[in-house]
């Protein structure tokens, strides 16, 4: 299988000199990152390396103390009105799904369309059904999240984010809370999205996904981007010793020689 890339030359997300502290602890130390439209960037690294924090800073769920973020060439400031607008263009998928338990599956997907985009309900419902179809869950539309599996929940969460027609999708360890047998269905929906040309920023421990789908892999360590490379380079010949040490721990031993 040859990997198809939808990466373009147009910069859609740019992060400059981002710094973030939790109290005295500096969790992001001068992060610089540029993402092109259509690119799939996977961020890997040990827990505590700052990768989730970085992702959460991109849509301002965490506020970085220093640095600049540009989405679509426009500087995003920490100003409520602009943030609400910018966040609509940044779909977020959480580790623990964070579905709205008091709404049905389709209610979850419609919520943003109806109450943020002010779309008429019947139109939103039609569109929600289409998106649910896309993630393979149109038959679960009218039941509550408590009644479906973790993998299905995460697919609904992806559908909920897609309903806002985001330009970038942010995934914060989307399969870490799932039973192993449910990981595949979520990754396949994500692969599908990547193949359709979605710009994606993914924090994950699924090295298979990084290898097969990513255009670029970023290794974070103690709040810095230590290394970035194509998945081929990153997994076969990492330059940094710490990257190698991390990959050795996380990848199964190679037995093809």
């Amino acid at each position: 299988m040859t990997k198809q890339t939808h990466k373009t030359d147009e910069t859609i997300l740019k992060i400059e000199h981002l710094k973030k502290w939790f109290g005295d602890l500096e969790v992001l130390k001068d992060i610089n990152l540029e993402v092109k439209r259509g690119e799939v960037v996977v961020i890997i690294g040990a827990s505590g390396s700052g990768k989730s924090t970085l992702l959460r800073c991109v849509n301002f769920l965490e506020k970085a103390q220093k640095g600049k973020i540009y989405v679509d060439g426009k500087r995003v400031k920490q100003q409520e009105k602009q943030l609400n607008k910018v966040r609509q263009g940044l779909g977020m998928v959480f580790q623990h799904f964070n579905l709205f338990p008091h709404m049905t599956v389709i209610g979850n997907v419609m919520e943003g369309m109806v109450h943020v985009k002010k779309m008429p309900k019947d139109k939103a419902r039609t569109k929600a059904l289409e998106i649910l179809e896309q993630v393979g869950l149109s038959d679960k539309a009218d039941i509550y999240p408590a009644m479906i599996s973790g993998g299905q929940k995460q697919r609904v969460a992806i559908a909920r984010a897609l309903a806002m027609e985001p330009e970038i999708m942010l995934f914060d360890e989307p399969t870490s809370a799932l039973d192993p047998e449910l990981v595949g269905e979520v990754l396949s929906v994500m692969t599908d999205l990547a193949n359709k040309g979605m710009t994606m920023l993914v924090v994950t421990h699924e090295m298979w996904f990084a290898k097969e789908v990513a255009d670029r892999v970023i290794f974070m360590d103690e709040g810095v981007i230590l290394e970035e490379a194509s998945p081929e380079e990153m997994f076969s010949a990492p330059k940094e010793e710490r990257t190698l040490a991390f990959l050795k721990q996380i990848l199964p031993p190679q037995d093809d020689e």
Binding site: R87, Q88, N98, E111, R160, M164
Partner: peptide, 14 residues
């Protein structure tokens, strides 16, 4: 759970 507020905000809700 605070994740509920975060999920709502991530959709662009005030």
């Amino acid at each position: 759970d605070y994740g509920q507020m975060e999920a709502a905000r991530s959709l662009g809700m005030t």
